[in-house]
Amino acid sequence: MKFFSLPRPGAGLVLGERDVPEPGPGQVLVRLRGWAVNARDLMIVKGFYPKPVKPDVIPLSDGAGEVVAVGEGVRTWTAGDRVAATYFPDWLSGPGTPEKTADDLGGTLDGVLAEYAVFAENALVAVPAHLDYAEAATLPSAGVTAWRAVVEEGGLAPGQSVLTLGSGGLSTFALQFAALGGAHVVSTSSSDEKLERLRALGAAETLNHATTPEWGPAVAGLTGGGVDHVVDVGGGGTIGQSMLAARYGGHVSVAGVLTHEGGADPILVLVKQLTLRGLTNASRETFQAMNTAIERTGLKPVIDRRFGFDEVAEALKHLESRTHIGKIVLESA
């Protein structure tokens, strides 16, 4: 089987071949058919990721495929089942803890950038039947994190307002989930062309943050004092404006850190009595709840571009360009 590894951060990916692994007791062998790339993957490959990465790691956390064999004692899965791997294999349910989130795919553990991989029986979820493998591969990171921000942690109710930032995979998922939940969604981007696409996905109002750098107060003005929920993916460069955009007593989910520069005055958290919640992915239980909703509604992830398995370098380069809308995926022939 083919696989990619990273000899050391910044060294570039290396294509290799090895025997297809055998599943041991309690394990499942999956033939991977679809993969998705994330900003985290780019950081790991370039050597900028601040958390531990195992030597010679197989990168990528997001993959989907079909079960081809199971080890002794496995009862949940049989050959032919369509599955996706969970980002944190040990986080099955409940709140996150250091123990549950200690190991992650493509970081401390080998990831999914291979034609075959072995997973623990309970580190997989069934994927919605109407999605192809590449679409299903967008769910483990961007989909689950957006669902947690908007629905699980945010507690979205119909008629509330939500602000999403940019047009990446997590933000487009957050927009779709919020719109499906009956929210009034405001979305920002630096591109008028992208804003048009975001409106087509369900954004009621849009703002160009390049031409409106003080977009926080502008959003508050559009929504009669501020939005109920903000899904912030920018980090230091956006959190200050996000807090200005939130209503008094509003909820701000910090779901990504694309920029470290800038800053925010913490007095806003006090004065506006905001809930500022950092989150990274979620449990297997949350993943399953999201998939149930996706299957019931027929939601389709937004795919910007599809690459072949061998074109992972081109896919990461496209991700780095930040010209995409939604997710960038790889798929096998």
Rank of each mutant, 00 (worst) to 15 (best):
F3Y: 10
S5Q: 00
A11H: 01
A11G: 12
L13M: 00
G16P: 02
V20R: 11
P23R: 06
P23S: 05
P25N: 03
Q27F: 08
V30W: 04
V30G: 01
R31W: 05
L32V: 14
V37G: 03
N38C: 00
M43G: 12
M43I: 03
V45S: 04
G47R: 10
Y49F: 14
Y49I: 09
P50E: 14
K51S: 15
P52V: 10
I58P: 00
S61R: 01
E66T: 13
A69Q: 04
R75S: 14
W77Q: 10
T78G: 13
G80R: 04
A85M: 05
D90C: 02
E99N: 03
A102T: 07
G106R: 04
G107L: 12
L109H: 04
V112M: 14
E115I: 04
Y116E: 06
A117H: 05
V118W: 01
E121L: 12
V125W: 10
A126G: 15
H130R: 07
R148E: 10
A149P: 02
A149W: 11
E152S: 14
G155M: 04
G155C: 06
G155A: 07
L156T: 02
G159Y: 01
S161G: 06
S161E: 14
S161I: 08
L163R: 11
L163Y: 09
G166K: 07
G169P: 03
L170I: 11
G182I: 03
S187N: 13
D192W: 08
E196Q: 14
A203T: 13
N208M: 11
P217W: 02
A220F: 09
G225E: 11
V230L: 13
G234V: 15
G234N: 02
I239Q: 08
Q241A: 15
L244N: 01
A245M: 13
A245Q: 03
S253L: 00
G256A: 08
G256Y: 02
E261Q: 02
G262I: 09
L268E: 05
K272G: 06
Q273N: 14
T275C: 13
L276R: 11
L276T: 06
R277T: 14
R277M: 13
G278F: 00
A282R: 00
R284Y: 00
F287H: 15
T297F: 14
I303Q: 01
D304R: 01
F309Y: 15
V312K: 10
A313Q: 10
A315L: 01
L319K: 03
E320Y: 04
G326F: 01
V329P: 10
E331S: 11
S332K: 12
